[in-house]
Design a protein around this nucleic acid. Structure first.
Lengths: 364, 364
DNA sequence: ACTAGCAATCATTCAACAAGAGTGCTAACA
DNA sequence: TGTTAGCACTCTTGTTGAATGATTGCTAGT
């Protein structure tokens, strides 16, 4: 889909095409020559417009569902529309406010926050939203806490640059609580500034040749290592969630249940969602679209997908995708996505700023 | 819907009715006289069965959608079926295993666990499941922890008999971490054995006449009280979530999108779901059904709802509801619900058993 | 009390038909 | 050469009517 295939459009054709697609995105019914006349080209007759539409159809930007119905954009048409419109993306103040609020009163846990964001984004855009988290194990550790509970479990809290990772482990009730806390402090002392993956790898090697300081924690470390190894599995494997599938039912293109279900079923299947995020992304906050056949999942070939990534360093940590009909409001969606990723960035700035005060806490 | 309106059924009518409904629940198409002949009454002619069906229709157990179609159970019919079948509820081993697993590898947080359970129950029953949590503020406190994070927030963990309540508050980074921990210990010392509501009420009154011991925590307590007051709001207000709405699309009675949407929209609306749990329930683990007009929400009058509550003392803490067509598999659903509530009970026994060892932790 | 048989009922399916909307094409015009 | 008016053509949508088929209600006979 090289851009130069768009070159040969006269300014008038360009305007007609953009207006046609814009109109179709709003009304969802095939665009006729008189639609366009009403919308933008009152100085031209419908016959002229028909000629132009005919030409645009020949070029592959539009297509007719049946001889005497109006015309509908093709994937190529949408692609042209998106490429042209990307320059300016007007943002909906209302949506932005909602998203901002999530980040303001943010939940401390990374997992919870992502969940809420998927929810908001889905509501804001009125389309299903999928979020894939990965590379959690590559986040930088600021602090580790192990908190024993009365029930024979203990919480592991790993504070990172981007939020808190939480997990639970089995705890031995016979062991004094202070030992767990000391173990957490030890981990902080040893691994702060390193990645979660480093810590877990380090634990495994340390385990074999523990020096005196470590020795007293040995019993804890044994269970801790088991738990951390389990944790790294859940952190390393891509963590996928999808929200707002029901929104699809509002779109007229999915008004029959079987076509809606085909898409929704894909969204329930993490393996298939993963494919959507297979290829690399340029940079944090850049919104990209996949339209129609560009989507590498068969059952979504009549959809469009908007995607933005939040990156730490060069690695994507979170990928957000919005799935809808090709007739989706690209501008609105791009606006929402850009803003969300921007808020992620602010958040990171905020957490790293407060990193300076790493007081070694005697007892956590 | 008094039970004695069922008395006047001959044994044969009873059998025919039960078989008819059972069949309908399976195949979802109107039951004809020959269906029944094939299923259970090979020794009777279809004409005889027609007479019986006619009688059952006159009594209000069945109804015809059109003169020459088969018959379909009425709400009264389902009600009879449910009352009769409640005696023995066969349970699906597979489902029970899944649910049991959730409780085994349980997440420590009450909210998360409920979420997972709703998910499992919905998948197990293949119908949407709603869960309402209430009376969290009435749970008994075992332990309180306040854990400052590096980001200027602090976690409040309240260990109760039924699980851990977690919440976050703003923390003052200038204050030593130990102060927060001591504050938690103070709360534990003072309020263990009391309810969460007692604690929060107590905090508010203590605040005014703090003695010396308290004085050093005053600054923390000021923000803590604000956070706890916010927390009590979220704990007191009914906490409602719904999962698996999409499952409804698999049921033939919701094969057209508008009827499915009518139900799904109700499920998105906490106020309306709340009405479903308005009336009182006999006792923990008892499954009750609302069928058709018995449901106090207009848009659900052609549904059936199964409900079970988990109670602490005399108060419902969690209400679980399953919403589906009247033609739902009542036995299977009752089995799943009973089992879930049973697991809740086991869990409680487990947490209270380990309560004995309330070691005052010097530093958390 | 049960059953066989028959007429009546009504949903469903399909084809034929009319109406309406939009296009393509042609011929005329600037 | 670009634009326009007019008309025939195409195809969807909605309606009607008849044929089909399944199931019942009823009656009469066992």
């Amino acid at each position: 889909m090289s851009d130069d295939s768009f070159e040969n459009l006269s300014e008038r054709k360009r305007q007609i095409l953009l207006n046609a697609i814009e109109e179709y995105i709003q009304v969802a019914t095939p665009i006729t020559s008189s639609n366009i006349r009403n919308k933008c080209c009152t100085d031209l007759s419908t016959a002229t417009l028909r000629n132009e539409l005919n030409a645009l159809e020949a070029m592959g930007y539009l297509r007719q569902l049946h001889t005497s119905g109006g015309r509908v954009p093709t994937s190529k048409g949408y692609r042209f529309f998106v490429n042209t419109m990307m320059a300016d993306v007007p943002m909906d103040k209302n949506v932005l406010g909602q998203i901002h609020q999530v980040f303001e009163q943010r939940t401390v846990y990374l997992g919870d926050m992502i969940n809420e964001i998927a929810d908001i984004v889905s509501k804001a855009t009125s389309y299903p939203t999928v979020v894939m988290l990965k590379g959690f194990e590559k986040l930088t550790i600021n602090n580790v806490k192990i908190i024993p509970l009365l029930t024979g479990q203990a919480l592991i809290l790993i504070e990172t640059n981007s939020g808190v990772i939480n997990n639970s482990m089995n705890a031995n009730l016979d062991m004094p609580a202070q030992t767990y806390i000391d173990a957490g402090n030890f981990l902080t002392r040893t691994f702060a500034g390193h990645t979660v993956a480093d810590m877990i790898k380090g634990m495994n090697t340390y385990r074999d040749d523990m020096d005196k300081e470590l020795f007293e924690y040995k019993a804890i470390f044994d269970t801790l290592i088991v738990s951390l190894n389990k944790l790294i599995d859940t952190l390393t494997e891509n963590n996928i969630l999808s929200k707002g599938e029901l929104q699809l039912l509002n779109a007229p293109e999915y008004s029959d249940i079987s076509s809606a279900k085909r898409v929704i079923d894909v969204l329930q299947n993490p393996e298939e969602i993963e494919q959507l995020f297979d290829d690399d992304v340029d940079e944090t906050g850049e919104v990209s679209f996949k339209i129609g056949a560009e989507i590498p999942v068969k059952d979504l070939q009549d959809c469009a997908i908007a995607r933005a990534d939040y990156q730490v360093g060069d690695e994507s940590v979170a990928s957000i995708g919005i799935i809808g009909p090709q007739r989706m409001d690209y501008a609105k969606i791009a606006g929402a996505l850009k803003f969300v990723v921007g808020e992620f960035n602010n958040l990171k700035a905020l957490t790293t700023a407060s990193k300076g005060e790493e007081d070694e806490q005697k007892s956590q």
